[in-house]
Design a protein around this nucleic acid. Structure first.
Lengths: 164, 164
DNA sequence: CGAAATGGCATGAAAATCCATTGTATCCCG
DNA sequence: CGGGATACAATGGATTTTCATGCCATTTCG
């Protein structure tokens, strides 16, 4: 196993400006840069949540390897080839890689912004190998999010004096 | 089995200053540094107590690896992807990693301070792979804490001439 | 030539770093 | 056995740096 030394963790709430730009929190950027020296972020629609999933380019390769292993396992127990094709397509076709500038800002591509339901606030949630970018409103409304996590979101909002 | 050689043990009571800074007791720091060379501490709300749980980054990685292995196993037998997402979110989104400076102090993030109910005194309790940070007042009031442990807390308070 | 996109700079707030002081346990030498 | 003297830990305060973000300059393309 690889790259378990630098994990994404923590949470933050940042503003999305009129042009769709967001500061990626410094503590997440530092992980990206330690995992490989790119100043890029790969964005994808999250597989189960109405949010975005994000990671460093180096992780994309790892993810591919994981899909391969999974496919092999499934073959032996009669899994579907179609599933595999679909998954790889999603993993690579439906992602966008964006650079962040010297001040750590990315421009959310309009399609991603739509897919991730991101409006004018971006809630960043660390999730180990990846992190997530949420619309805080949807986060609080989602039945699948543990209450403890919602408390965190509420705190981040309160911290900035924002009431939804 | 891993890293069972350096365990967190002992107890201490330190002050939290107006800015939320606390000295992490030296004997706990030395364990962190022996377990991996980072001078960082990962903070999380304790799963059952109204206090904080703390550990070194290396332990967090271990925790992640465990989740990963579990997830891969489950996927092959049709386990839920949602469960996995939730677990990683809790394990990493609900934690914060903070560095300590040359004099061994951390800045308690406001959110953690609130989640852990920490006010102006921090009671450190070693717990093997992790250690805990308590508000001594809550520690003494908690029905689940053995009386012998409370005696220790009382001693630490008395030692400093503090009466709650 | 105008509108929009992109990159760079400025600001105010927050946090990391540094320095200084105090307190405490340990050691060494009388 | 006592009494400095010494090293380390904890804490208070001040300073420097970093971060998020608004604003402006420059470029690009219709």
């Amino acid at each position: 196993m690889v790259a378990l030394e630098h994990l994404f963790q923590g949470s933050a709430l940042n503003a999305v400006d009129a042009k769709g730009r967001v500061s990626v929190p410094a503590f997440l950027r530092s992980v990206i840069e330690r995992r490989g020296d790119a100043r890029n972020i790969v964005l994808a629609k999250h597989e189960v949540f109405p949010a975005l999933s994000a990671y460093d380019p180096a992780y994309a390769a790892l993810k591919y390897a994981k899909l391969e292993r999974l496919a092999e396992k499934e073959e032996t127990i009669g899994g579907s080839e179609l599933d595999y094709a679909r998954r790889t397509m999603m993993a690579f076709g439906a992602t966008e890689e964006v650079p962040y500038d010297s001040s750590g800002r990315i421009l959310l591509p309009p399609m991603m912004r739509r897919k991730g339901n991101v409006e004018d606030l971006a809630l960043f949630i660390g999730a180990g190998e990846t992190f997530q970018i949420w619309n805080p409103k949807l986060f609080l409304a989602d039945d699948n999010i543990p209450e403890d996590m919602k408390d965190i979101a509420r705190f981040r909002l309160e911290e900035r004096g924002i009431a939804l």
